[in-house]
Design a protein around this nucleic acid. Structure first.
Length: 423
RNA sequence: CGGGGUGUGGCGCAGUUGGCUAGCGCGGUCGGUUUGGGACCGACAGGUCGAAGGUUCGAGUCCUUUCACCCCGACCA
């Protein structure tokens, strides 16, 4: 992508209507556009980050047998009345709308009901189970107060997965496989070391605990108690002696931390399947309840979380796995030799499948290009100038390195290919 | 939903106890000089001062209502 043609521009000043660092950085760097409170558009660079995160999540969900599908945003009222979740007194953050006929509809805030309803058409025998399905879709929640940039929006992108099992044991096995997949997701996103599987309230659904994935962060709204050797935690909401004992945690080993919830998984038992009358027939011809689980990851919240987590005083610092491009190619000057060398490198890297942001702007001075490279947080910066052309080398600098190094073309491609492979 | 704060060119801001043609920086356009960490000079363009109503000879400034955004709290299946 050539910066001279990029839809967005960076800004030297931070937006006046944002306080949250994730939103400030992403807006200044031109990754997102604020439409209204809690509602943000993804611009070309931001969309790449979003898609990179989605892709990692997809790969891990597919690896545990998940089948991707996409449910609808518009929801029929009757379906939600069957589980008693339509009434605003029960669920107060619905967005509701109407058909031209006046019939009320809901705008999807979660999808347990519709997914169960849809699967009722395809599941009838024990031979049809277990199944695991997921989607990545926008969710709409009428929050009384949107805040913290991308961390708490009214429209946001979420991956939600649902499992349906024949027995509790079968469910538990799926649940643990998916829990392991979640850990892999956070590791690949670069926050594995600060993200803890955290016991939380199963709440509305069951007597069991649910599991949250909490990333330790100063901007966190949640408080958790972490056992750093066991790598697990317990949410403050359920921090009681009784629960500590159930979880095999010792108070003396726990450290209090602020954290951001970046995922959660719930055992739902047969609450929804029974309520919607979806059962299966076992091998002796008897009707049996279907055990359900649901598993969420806030994709857009992760964009904000990661932006804020990986940043310094110069701007964003994306991990290679999710950066909008691997390389920021800064061309200094418009000398014929320089343009030629830069164009060649751009084409060659692109051809090798390495994503490059090519700063080919003729009206931007070097300092501006370096500042933008830093602000956008692109992992590697390559500079081509009259100096590098004369020396027959390229100047390469990692976003987090203090100094640049001068490398040959072969060495450059070698390093950048390694980057690509690890991503 | 309670409390606090802020709305002035695309962006960030200033604007005194009401006073005459509403300023500054960035960005933009044109011309010129520059060119390795956000350059400089000159010229130009760009505003119903969030909106509605009111007070006044006169309102960005005072009053009422309202909307939006931010923060704290409540809420967060």
């Amino acid at each position: 992508m050539r910066l001279s043609q990029l839809f967005t521009k960076t800004s030297k000043t931070s937006p006046a209507d944002e306080e949250a660092r994730n939103a400030i950085l992403l807006i200044q760097a031109g990754f997102i556009h604020k439409e209204m409170a809690g509602v943000y558009a993804y611009l070309p660079l931001g969309l790449r980050v979003l898609e990179n995160i989605k892709q990692i999540v997809r790969e891990e969900m597919d690896a545990v047998g998940g089948q991707e599908l996409m449910m609808t945003t518009l929801q029929p009222r009757e379906l939600w009345e069957k589980t008693n979740r339509w009434d605003d007194k029960i669920v107060d953050n619905w967005f509701k709308t109407k058909l031209a006929s006046g019939i009320e509809l809901g705008v999807g805030l979660t999808h347990e009901e519709p997914i169960v309803d849809a699967l009722s058409s395809y599941i009838s025998s024990y031979k049809d189970l277990p199944v695991t399905v997921y989607q990545i879709q926008n969710k709409f929640r009428n929050e009384k107060r949107a805040k913290s940039g991308l961390l708490r929006g009214r429209e946001f992108v979420m991956k939600d997965m649902y499992t349906f099992a024949r027995t509790q044991a079968e469910h538990d096995e799926l649940y643990e496989q998916i829990a392991a997949a979640y850990s892999r997701v956070y590791s690949r996103l670069g926050i594995g070391d600060v993200t803890y599987r955290t016991a939380a309230d199963g709440g509305y659904f069951t007597e069991r605990f649910s599991d949250e994935y909490q990333t330790v962060s100063p901007i966190g709204e949640d408080t958790i108690y972490v056992d750093e050797t066991k790598k697990i935690a317990i949410n403050q909401e359920i921090y009681t002696d009784e629960n500590l004992e159930k979880l095999g945690l010792n108070k003396a080993d726990l450290v209090e931390k602020k954290s951001v919830e970046v995922g959660n998984i719930f055992p739902l038992e047969s609450k929804y399947t029974d309520a919607l009358g979806v059962q299966y027939t076992d091998d002796s011809g008897k009707k049996q309840s279907i055990i359900m689980g649901c598993y969420g990851i806030g994709i857009s919240r992760l964009v904000g979380m990661l932006a804020e987590h990986f940043a310094d005083d110069k701007g964003l610092v994306w991990p290679e796995a999710i950066a909008p491009a691997k390389v920021y190619l800064a061309r200094l000057g418009i000398d014929e030799d320089v343009v030629k060398a830069a164009d060649e490198l751009y084409n060659s890297l692109q051809g090798a499948g390495i994503e490059v942001l090519y700063d080919d702007r003729e009206d931007a001075r070097p300092g501006e290009k370096f500042a933008d490279a830093d602000l956008m947080g692109i992992p590697y910066r390559v500079v081509i100038s009259t100096k590098t052309v004369a020396a027959g080398t390229y100047e390469l600098k990692h976003r987090t390195a203090a100094d640049a190094e001068h490398v040959s073309h072969a060495r450059l491609e070698e390093i950048l290919h390694t980057v690509e492979a690890s991503a």
